[in-house]
Design a protein around this nucleic acid. Sequence first.
DNA 1: CTGTTAGCGCGTTCAT
DNA 2: ATGAACGCGCTAACAG
Lengths: 348, 348
Amino acid sequence: MVTIYDIAAKAGVSAMTVSRVINNTGKISDKTRTKVRRVMDELGYVQNQMARSLVLQQSNLLFLLITDITNPFYTTLARGAEDAAKKHGYRLLFGNSDESLDKEKDYLDTILATRADGVLIAPTGDSSLPHLETLRKHDVPFVLLDREVPGMESDIVLGDSKEGARRLVEHLSSLGHKRIAMINGSRHVSSARMRLEGYREALKLNDLPYEDQYVLETAFEPRSDLSAIEHWLAEMNPAPTAIIAGNNVLAVEVIRTLTAQGKQVPDDMSLVCFDDLGPLSEINPFLTVIAQQAYQFGYLGMQMLVDRLKERGEPTVPWKKIVLPADMIVRRSAVACGCGLTDTCLGG
Amino acid sequence: MVTIYDIAAKAGVSAMTVSRVINNTGKISDKTRTKVRRVMDELGYVQNQMARSLVLQQSNLLFLLITDITNPFYTTLARGAEDAAKKHGYRLLFGNSDESLDKEKDYLDTILATRADGVLIAPTGDSSLPHLETLRKHDVPFVLLDREVPGMESDIVLGDSKEGARRLVEHLSSLGHKRIAMINGSRHVSSARMRLEGYREALKLNDLPYEDQYVLETAFEPRSDLSAIEHWLAEMNPAPTAIIAGNNVLAVEVIRTLTAQGKQVPDDMSLVCFDDLGPLSEINPFLTVIAQQAYQFGYLGMQMLVDRLKERGEPTVPWKKIVLPADMIVRRSAVACGCGLTDTCLGG
DNA sequence: CTGTTAGCGCGTTCAT
DNA sequence: ATGAACGCGCTAACAG
């Protein structure tokens, strides 16, 4: 490994001078600078970030921890965070907790151990609280993304989940649906909680009754319990005519299961969900969705993080909270209720 | 920041003893171990990876660098790499070069500076050579993913691009298409090169003429030059009846552009491509694709990397090369040529 | 403008 | 079974 001492020796200067050239600090004569630069190139010097971070007590590294790297919502968010980080001259590394508390803990350990300067994190759920407390305790600035964690104040970027659910119900109701079911993530995830609340409130507003049997609380994970979905879909009685999925992954699972049960969307069942499905949605529009501004989640979140980084030590600015509105995109997966709008509708 | 010295002081032992407890090295009496452990918990000690890496000369960190984090092919690959890394007890961090040589360089700098133990990399293209040479020079083991880089030998996981292209042409030909166009990534990316070659060879095998005007070489990037695609699509004469896209992103762009020009897929134009589009493909099957085993790219690549890590210092094992076969999934985006299978077909 | 000294937090080596 | 001294590569602070 080439060190600044190697450079120094070969260039006939001290290590300190080399350090100064590298970091552009202090005054260096053009001649020495040029010479040092040349030797650096010759020897293929690479700064040892470890050593540097050790003395500087900061790594110049930012982390983004998402919960599902295969979900277009999070990858688009990641692009936003990336662009904002680059704009401010920070380096960004990604981690994927895969909706697992354990993996989240592993990543947080890594983040702590590498002394990241800041973290953008979509927590797996309310149980992430201890993880965030650790971060806070170690004085690592972080911004929460997409999910609140009760008991932890911080900067945060959220979607308007309640309003989204309300609009979805409204839309289905306007299509004549009266039995609207909802499959959702765990109630220990704030976004799922808010969506369920919005759903219940909207039912009330539309004079539709709420029934427990029409709600399944499972998990946002891609590999969640499929048989639960299967049973739920098969056993609701009378069957709903429309389903709201708490996110895109669940919507996909519902369609899969429905198909396996010989039912078609939207002919036999209308379906809408939160979060779009990436580029394919544009070229082959199918799912009616509440499309959140994924890119902005990342971009604005990173912006807030960088702001925090800058104020280090200054009097604490109050926590900021951004709530992003979302647009409904009406496509083909939800159609008018085929029951003639009567109460005796049996689900098309 | 809590250091081993803080622990040592409070536990009434030396820092060295604390270090031994942390790393489970040497002989420590149960009593001291217990005591040290308790103090560590009390103080919320977190090992300083920087300092540790500095003395150990290794970071225990692995990196995966992909070229498009919004592309399902790469995110699925990432999941594979992640699972394999976890299986072997390694930590994995992600980077996204976004098909940009500059960003790739930035990430490589970070990787070098953080002294990663190994790297899994999908290079942006042939121009990545110097980057790889730097990696090699600094003795960082790496495995190439999805793309070869002429001039650099290494472990590598590849898809059978040539065979894939052959099968796509074969399929279209069997549907009666005679004018089959191809939109592709840059010829400075090996996968694009191989796909073009496969296309040309397959045309020959099927007694179809090759024409330059039917080939557009652009870039695999999501935000590539759209007007080029526009012009190309508008100006081919006679228009092709089918198009092969070098990857999923390009396929999406083609559909978008075609739609803007008032044409429908597959009614006015058949379209097939490399790489599937994630979960939505399953629920709303549309694109006929060569579906590469994305997960295996990552999983097997990581496996190879870990193997290399283990043999450190031993006599060099020859470079390994894995070529993954791919399945064609026939869906709805390519249909029989509507021209009655005559040579005067106008693409209609 | 340039060099010297010291120390960031940790683990290896050698003592005890 | 435990500790002291040293060095990993770098930079801040102070000297010249």
